[in-house]
Computed example of a mutant assay.
Amino acid sequence: MSRIGKKPVQVPAGVTATVDGQTVTAKGPKGELKFVVNDEVLVKLENGEIAVTPRDESKDARSKWGMSRTQIENILIGVKDGFEKKLEISGVGYRAAMQGKNIQLSLGFSHEVVYETPEGITIATPKPTEIVVTGIDKQVVGQVAAEIRKYRGPEPYKGKGVRYANERIVRKDGKKK
C-alpha cells in the first residue's frame, strides 16, 4: 500500500479544482494546469479533497497510485504559489545576465551561451552569480534549471561551474607533492 497515495489531496483556498473523467484541472491566482491521470488509477473530488485510488491490486496500478497523487498535489501548489529553483555560479569570470527574456551565460567558453526561456517560465538574475527560475509547473522549472546547470556543471577540484543553491559538491584533493 502506498502511504503517499492513501492521503487525500486538500484543495487550497483560492484554487478551483475539477475532475472530469481522468483529467484533473486546477485554476488559481498564478494560472491553470491540467493533469491526465493514468487509466489504472481512479480519481474522485469530494468535500474539497481529491482522493486517488488504484482500480485494482495489480503492481502496475499500485506503482502509479502515489505518483498520480503527487502530480495532482504539485499542480494545486503550482497554481497557488508556484515553484522556484535557485542556481549559483562560481568561477572567475563566470556570470549570467538577462538579454531580453533570454539569459546570457559567460561560463569560460570562447563564446557566450544564450538560453532561450520556455513559455510559462520566468528567469531572473538578482546578482551576476545567481539565477532564479520560477514557474507554475514543477517539472518544467526543474527541467530548465537542469538544462542551465548542464552547460557547465560543478567540477570537483575547485567547485567552479553552475550548481543548485543547496547542492553540496564533494571536493577532491589535488595531486600531493
Rank of each mutant, 00 (worst) to 15 (best):
I75A: 00
E57I: 04
R62T: 06
V43T: 14
K59I: 15
K64D: 01
I72M: 06
I50L: 04
E57S: 07
E46N: 12
E57A: 06
N74P: 02
A51W: 10
T53M: 11
I72R: 02
E40G: 00
A51Q: 12
D60Q: 13
V43H: 02
I75N: 05
A51T: 14
W65A: 05
E49F: 09
K59F: 11
L42E: 06
S58C: 08
S63M: 07
E49L: 11
D60L: 10
E57P: 07
G66E: 09
R69K: 12
I72H: 03
L45S: 06
V41F: 04
V52A: 05
D60W: 04
N47E: 11
M67R: 01
N74I: 00
L45G: 09
R55V: 15
G66H: 09
T53A: 14
V43S: 01
I50G: 03
E57V: 00
A61G: 03
E40L: 06
E40D: 07
Q71H: 10
R69C: 03
P54S: 14
K59V: 14
P54L: 02
D56M: 02
P54I: 04
E49S: 08
T70M: 10
G66L: 02
L42W: 10
W65N: 08
R62I: 14
R62E: 12
I75L: 07
E57L: 10
Q71E: 11
